[in-house]
Design a protein around this nucleic acid. Structure first.
Lengths: 319, 319
DNA sequence: TTGTAAGCGTTATCAG
DNA sequence: CTGATAACGCTTACAA
């Protein structure tokens, strides 16, 4: 594998001149430059990024740390991030599990976007204080070099529930996500607040875990218990899908007998029958704006605060 | 940010001794070692990976290059890869677009798994010949340092179609994927071969593109044309879903009027009505075995050839 | 416009 | 068991 030394030798110049030419610096004679570029091409030379990184103390990589690679949400956010990074000549490095902290610790990235509740607050704060800017998407976190952007879970669910109350529903249930999940808890807050503001002080609560299987099981349990709410707000679409599936199998009509809505607007929601009413976030745009914000921090520009990502209620057939 | 130099100074030893201790080499006195480790801990020291990489000429990173981050298949394959890499102390670096070739060229990875038809054969072959082992999953490619593992598309579709013929279906249609997609073409081969072997020499062909929207549109077009096959093999599940959706909206019963099957076993297939018959690949296991194979190449062990990933027909309700 | 040389933070060779 | 020191491949003052 050829190094800059080989190029320099072949072109009959010093290493530094070769470096200047290869980096397109203006202080090198056109002819020499041409000779150097030709030599590089002939040798099939490409700079060793590692060496460059060591010297320049920047890697050109941005880490995106996710909890897992599944889930319809990640992909959209990632696509937004990728677009913006590519445009700004940064590499995207998506990682999960132990790799994420390794890459951070070993300084193989210039900054990171964190979408992984597996990385603890303390850990992140400590890394950030070492100088790596971090943008956290799945929780609220404040600290030196650390920024966060989260969905307005509470406001959006509040809005949806208010509409449902207006529509005449009264007997409500909440199909929960994991109780340690940021998103779940804030959605629950919005749910409770809306009921509260409309003087509805009772509702049915069902534990669940954001999964289709969990939603299915929760519905089965509910049916056994003979307790049938009129409207179920599901903390996310996947649990809503499982829930619907169980209802359908038990000949309960949606929305005539039980109405429901979810959160996330995952793409299969519109292919179910009935089509799922849900709350949609523009995930791609979210990824874009977070990336822009992170890059502006890295470039030491004005640190403009990122707003909540755009969200809206998507009314379909399930309620 | 502390370096090994700081640690050495604090512990009152030379840099090299500090390095030995930090790397757990046996040739250092227990007491000195303890002192060094203590100093490192106190300074919150962690080795700079970039510097280590430059010296050792290995990064400990494996690239996984994908065409996009969406799609239910990637996530499973990625999870299998992640598991195995983590077990073997390699970092997983998932990338897409221009980043992928950058990371390869800049030698920020020790090898890569390619699942991205956006990277051309020539490019990959040229990188691999420079010494980076590559495993390609979306096409068949031979060359120095380059290996590939692909689904047995043809055999599996052949098997499914043979069953359908046995079942009595005769009037067939093929809902195609992109005609430049490796997977599509081999599925088509299997489809044609099965028909051929059973002396069925005519079938209906519908162009499509692997997407839900495309499948939906194809069905609409078919309905307009008044041509109704009895069984449609869809080149993947997503197009099958769109196709089904359009049929349902037009009150065509599945499977009574038109039966169909897909390929991929994406998880929503079982939540449709009717549930989708499909061909499932154990993607996680595939990711695992490919990773094992790549690592064994990197470690210069015996290069055992990876077989086709496991696949099976999953009979459900759509045919 | 070009060359010399220092240095980025490690590891590894060799001598002590 | 420990310490100088060279080297990895590159960038960048500074000197020529």
């Amino acid at each position: 594998m050829p190094t800059i030394k080989d190029v320099a030798k072949k072109a009959g110049v010093s290493i530094s001149t070769a470096s200047y030419a290869l980096n397109n610096l203006p202080n090198v004679h056109p002819e020499t430059k041409e000779r150097i570029l030709a030599a590089a091409k002939e040798l099939n030379y490409y700079p060793n990024g590692i060496a460059r990184n060591l010297k320049t103390k920047r890697t050109g990589n941005i880490g995106v740390f996710v909890y897992g690679f599944s889930g319809p949400i990640f992909s959209d956010v990632l696509e937004g991030i990728r677009q913006r990074l590519q445009k700004n000549n940064y590499n995207i490095i998506v990682s999960s599990g132990k790799s994420s902290s390794n890459l951070l610790l070993e300084r193989q990235v210039d900054g990171a976007i964190v979408f992984d509740n597996g990385l603890s607050d303390d850990l992140l704060i400590s890394y950030a204080s070492h100088g790596l800017p971090l943008y956290v998407l799945d929780r609220e976190l404040e600290g030196e070099n650390i920024y966060s952007s989260v969905i307005d879970n509470e406001g959006l669910v509040y809005q949806l529930m208010t509409e449902m109350i207006k529509k005449g529903y009264r007997d409500f249930a909440y199909l929960s996500g994991p109780t340690d999940a940021f998103n779940n808890n804030h959605r629950f807050d919005g749910f409770k607040l809306a009921l509260n503001h409309h003087h509805i002080h009772e509702f049915h609560y069902m534990a669940c875990d954001f999964t289709i299987q969990g939603g299915y099981q929760a519905a089965i349990n509910m049916l056994k218990s003979q307790k049938k709410p009129r409207f179920v707000f599901c903390a996310n679409d996947e649990s809503a899908i499982g829930f619907m599936q169980a209802l359908k199998e038990n000949n309960i009509r949606i929305p005539e007998d039980i109405a429901l809505a979810g959160f996330d607007n995952i793409y299969l929601g519109q292919y179910l029958s009935p089509k799922l009413t849900t709350i949609g976030i523009n995930h791609t745009k979210w990824g874009q704006s977070v990336t822009d914000a992170l890059l502006s921090v890295i470039k030491n520009e004005h640190t403009k605060k990122v707003d909540h990502p755009q969200g809206e209620i998507i009314y379909r057939e399930s309620c």
